[in-house]
Design a protein around this nucleic acid. Structure first.
Length: 296
DNA sequence: TACACGTGGAT
DNA sequence: TATCCAAGTGT
């Protein structure tokens, strides 16, 4: 029965998968790794053009490692969460120094690279190297929550039970498991979506536990919404946008102009955020202590 | 475990 | 307009 599920989903994927550059036959493991980091919390449409430019400029980990961290942050453009650019740069350096510039194909070796967590390590091992791993991202968790568990959405945090379910569904051989993994994720991205699932287009709707239960609404613990307006995150973003746009050190007065007092939640917010950016390695103070720039 | 961390499109 | 959501990770 599980094999029927696999066949239905893999067949659907072959007919409906998006053509993305990191899925092309000429893709590299590095390209897959870069795509996975960029796609963390950022939609495909916004990643694609940045990924193309990035890969043209830095076609191998060693190429990126030879650049400055600031160049990486600037090339990250407006994908968001710019610490990912810093970590990707650090991972490239680690790949150059510890793996002779070759992206490792071992799950545990991938997992300890900067910015590579449980999901991304499994994704690279699976999509770039065709291995057999449970790949649990938000899409897969939602599909399994519905199709297997019969619930409208997954729990707020990944559970051991979900890992066990995903592992139990994995086809035996590596190649099929890898195709299954990408197929489930694509179904979650295109059909079994969070807001308005297109169950009429779903290849497994007839055996979906959630559909068979009458599509009951979510009854788990509420998800905390992301706060935004007036937060440090917003102020950090505005400060960093100024540093990114400038190609020389920026005076404090220019940062004050970008984030005026009236926009602050408290009088110390701007200084606190600036210090936070410096602490995170996203900004560096100049020798005079009156200028800031992206890291060199 | 819960929270911090950017940005922009969709509803 | 406000809220939700998008291929998560680090602390």
């Amino acid at each position: 029965m599980a094999s029927e599920l696999v066949g239905a989903l893999v067949g659907w994927y072959d007919a409906n998968a998006r053509e993305l550059p990191w899925r092309q036959p000429d893709r590299t493991a590095w390209g897959v790794l870069v795509s996975e980091v960029m796609l963390q919390q950022t939609p495909v449409r916004r990643v694609e053009p940045v990924w193309r430019t990035w890969m043209q400029r830095w076609p191998t980990p060693s190429d990126l490692a030879a650049a400055s961290a600031g160049d990486a942050v600037r090339a990250w453009e407006r994908l968001g969460y710019p610490r990912r650019a810093l970590r990707l740069h650090a991972a490239a350096t680690q790949i150059r120094d510890r793996h002779a510039g070759v992206v490792p194909d071992d799950l545990d070796e991938l997992r300890v690279l900067d910015g590579i967590g449980e999901y991304t390590a499994a994704a690279v091992a699976t999509f770039a190297f065709g291995q057999r791993h449970a790949v649990l991202d938000t899409n897969v968790r939602r599909v399994l929550a519905r199709a297997v568990q019969g619930r409208a959405q997954a729990a707020p945090a990944l559970t051991a039970a979900e890992r066990a379910t995903a592992t139990s569904l994995l086809p035996d051989d590596d190649a099929t498991a890898a195709r299954w993994a990408i197929a489930v994720m694509e179904l979650g991205a295109l059909v079994c979506t969070a807001r308005q699932p297109q169950c009429g287009d779903c290849p497994i709707a007839d055996r979906c536990a959630w559909q068979l239960a009458g599509a009951p609404p979510y009854d788990g613990p509420p998800r905390r919404g992301q706060t935004w307006h007036g937060t440090d995150r917003q102020v950090r973003g505005r400060l960093l946008a100024v540093l990114r746009a400038a190609h020389r050190p920026v005076r404090r007065a220019d940062l004050v102009r970008a984030v005026p007092d009236d926009d602050l939640r408290d009088p110390h917010q701007r200084d606190r955020c600036l210090a936070g950016l410096v602490h995170d390695g996203l900004a560096e103070p100049g020798p005079d202590d009156d200028t800031y720039a992206l890291p060199g």
